[in-house]
């Protein structure tokens, strides 16, 4: 475990009790809070990476957090290439990880 959502009880900003929200990532159910981004829910569930790079198959997840680097892209309800750090999760979102092989060069 590493990243986590601060519990409302211990948060100095005294938040209202948040509304839970559930989505699936590659079939696994993850629960977050209404208003979180997909990346926020996945991170707080303990997953730091959700993509493999094309050239070296290295793991990637969140990096810039503000929609600049495109490292965090996922497929959301069938839509590819969605930046997980930018898209707010909706209840029941079906998230799948993406991997794109470098296309073979055909002579």
């Amino acid at each position: 475990m590493s990243a986590r959502l601060l519990s409302p009880e211990s948060d100095p900003i005294r938040p209202d009790q948040p509304q839970p929200l559930t989505l699936t990532l590659d079939g696994d159910e993850l629960t977050g809070v209404t208003g979180q981004t997909i990346a926020g829910i996945v991170l707080a569930a303990g997953r730091l990476s959700w993509r493999r790079t094309s050239v070296r198959a290295q793991p990637r997840g969140l990096f810039c957090g503000i929609g600049v680097c495109f490292d965090c892209i996922v497929t959301v309800n069938g839509e590819r290439d969605v930046r997980a750090c930018q898209r707010r999760a909706q209840p029941g979102d079906v998230i799948t990880t993406q991997h794109d092989d470098v296309p073979e060069v055909i002579e």
Partner: peptide, 9 residues
Amino acid sequence: YAKGERVAV
């Protein structure tokens, strides 16, 4: 993530 979601990375 700290300010926008209260998630510590």
